[in-house]
Amino acid sequence: MTEPLSLATVLVLLPPSETKAAGGEGPPLDLDALSTPELTPTRHRLIEALTDLADDVPSSLEALGLSERQAEEVQRNAELRESPTAPALRRYTGVLYDALDIGSLPERERARAERRLAVVSALFGLVRGTDAIPAYRLSASGNLPRVGTLRGVWRPVLEPVLAEVDDFVVDLRSGAYAALAKVPGAVEVRVLSEDSTGKRKVVSHHNKSHKGKLARALGRAPEEPRTVEDVLTVAKEADLRVEREADRQLCVIVPA
């Protein structure tokens, strides 16, 4: 059984990735072994709906917003109860997780990061870095037959769980995943580009990379970040330019 969320002083919330690493060396999914057991009934409900949907490939493609060339993603959903698992921070891939690069951290730093980082998932709700999960395909914007929107499913059950977390929370989620559950008092982070004249604008395409770098810095920091000022210090030591916009709002500034 993984350690409870309350053992971490800082909790960094990450979005998942649409793409997942294939395979894994862990046994098939055991929902009872995942952290945050309060979410188990909802996880069961969504897994049943997703695997049932996988029996109808055309309907799956439509519901998941996939093309016919992505039919293998439907097969992953059909097999997710039996397929091998991998730790969440190794299962998710893509730009943010490339920048996080959890596998390159020394053992002690990696253990810190696995304890501090968590992923808000459309299928599992909230998973810790070491939670063993299979490959699957489901996004926060999904709408499953007989279930409805993922936001409608998760908000009533996930928000109370996150509201009880005593940790200092840094929220690096994208908009769709932030909509699954609000976190009272969380520090939100956005990424802005700045040109030579000082004009700034929101970064969309590359913001995941910069959030991944910040997540890596927060995960590996030798001292627990407990305040906004601590986050700013950690970012500076990692050669990241991060500024405070408001009491609970930070921005990562990158060159245009």
Rank of each mutant, 00 (worst) to 15 (best):
N207R: 15
R110H: 09
V170M: 02
G219E: 00
S209N: 13
G142L: 03
R241Q: 11
R155W: 02
V153F: 07
L162C: 01
V202N: 14
S209E: 15
R128N: 09
E114V: 07
P184W: 06
L240A: 00
D131H: 01
A132D: 11
V119P: 04
G142W: 07
L214N: 12
G185A: 09
N207G: 08
L123T: 03
K199V: 14
A163T: 13
A238S: 05
G142P: 07
K211N: 09
H210F: 15
K182M: 12
W154H: 04
R115S: 10
E114Q: 10
L150S: 03
P160F: 04
G142Y: 05
L117M: 01
A122H: 02
G212H: 11
A217Y: 05
A215I: 10
E114G: 02
L172I: 11
A176E: 15
V187I: 10
S174K: 12
T130A: 13
L192F: 10
R151A: 14
R146M: 10
K236H: 15
L117Q: 02
V203R: 08
A217M: 06
E223R: 13
R241V: 13
A179C: 10
T227I: 02
T233H: 14
K201W: 14
A113R: 05
G198R: 07
L162N: 00
S209Q: 14
G198S: 03
P145C: 07
A122G: 06
E114A: 06
R115D: 08
F124E: 05
T149Y: 01
A215H: 09
R116T: 01
V191G: 02
V231Q: 04
Y136I: 06
D195H: 04
R190S: 13
S196F: 11
S204N: 15
E245G: 07
R151Y: 04
R137P: 06
S139D: 15
R216T: 08
G148C: 05
R200V: 09
D230M: 01
A246R: 13
T130F: 00
K201S: 15
R128C: 12
L158Q: 05
T197E: 15
G152E: 11
V161F: 04
P145H: 12
D171H: 08
F124Q: 03
V183F: 10
R146D: 15
R115Q: 15
T227W: 00
P156S: 07
G125E: 09
E237N: 14
R200K: 13
V169M: 02
A217C: 05
L144M: 07
G212E: 12
T197M: 12
A118F: 06
A132W: 04
F168A: 00
S174E: 12
L240P: 00
A217S: 04
E243T: 08
N143F: 07
V119L: 03
Y136E: 08
D171L: 08
Y177I: 12
V202C: 06
Y177D: 13
D239C: 06
K236Q: 15
E224V: 02
R226S: 12
S174P: 11
V203P: 03
A215C: 12
R241K: 14
T227N: 01
